[in-house]
Simulated scan of single mutants.
Amino acid sequence: MIDATITVTGLRKRFGPTTALDAMTFTVAHGQVTGFVGPNGAGKSTTMRVIVGLDAADEGSALVGGQPYRRLHKPLHHLGVLLDAAALQPSRTARDHLLWLAHSQGLTARRVDEVIDQAGLGSVARRRAGGFSLGMRQRLGIAAAMLGDPAALMLDEPFNGMDPEGIVWMRGFLRSLAAQGRAVLVSSHLMSELQDTADHVVIVGRGKVIADTSVAQLLAAASQGRVTVGTDDPAAAQVLARSGATGVTVTGAQTLSVTGMSAQAVVAALNAGGVTFSEVSAHRATLEQAYLDLTRDAVEFRAADGPVTR
Score class of each variant (00 low, 15 high):
residue 193 E to L: 00
residue 50 V to C: 11
residue 269 A to D: 03
residue 128 R to K: 15
residue 220 A to R: 15
residue 234 P to Y: 09
residue 221 A to S: 10
residue 22 D to M: 11
residue 185 L to V: 09
residue 38 G to F: 09
residue 57 A to F: 12
residue 91 S to T: 14
residue 267 V to E: 08
residue 101 L to P: 00
residue 101 L to N: 11
residue 120 G to Q: 05
residue 170 M to I: 02
residue 31 G to W: 02
residue 309 T to H: 01
residue 205 G to L: 03
residue 56 A to D: 06
residue 146 M to D: 08
residue 43 G to M: 06
residue 188 S to R: 01
residue 80 G to H: 05
residue 195 Q to H: 05
residue 121 L to Y: 12
residue 302 R to E: 13
residue 213 T to D: 09
residue 235 A to P: 00
residue 178 A to L: 05
residue 150 P to V: 08
residue 176 S to L: 02
residue 155 L to G: 05
residue 70 R to H: 04
residue 32 Q to E: 15
residue 101 L to D: 03
residue 41 G to Q: 05
residue 261 M to T: 10
residue 163 D to W: 06
residue 132 F to M: 12
residue 219 L to M: 00
residue 32 Q to M: 06
residue 179 A to C: 02
residue 52 V to C: 12
residue 196 D to V: 03
residue 77 H to E: 14
residue 229 V to C: 09
residue 138 Q to M: 10
residue 177 L to K: 11
residue 100 W to I: 10
residue 208 K to V: 13
residue 185 L to F: 04
residue 225 G to R: 13
residue 161 G to S: 08
residue 162 M to Y: 00
residue 17 P to H: 12
residue 110 R to Y: 09
residue 203 I to H: 01
residue 104 S to N: 12
residue 53 G to K: 07
residue 295 T to W: 03
residue 225 G to C: 10
residue 31 G to H: 07
residue 165 E to N: 14
residue 88 L to I: 15
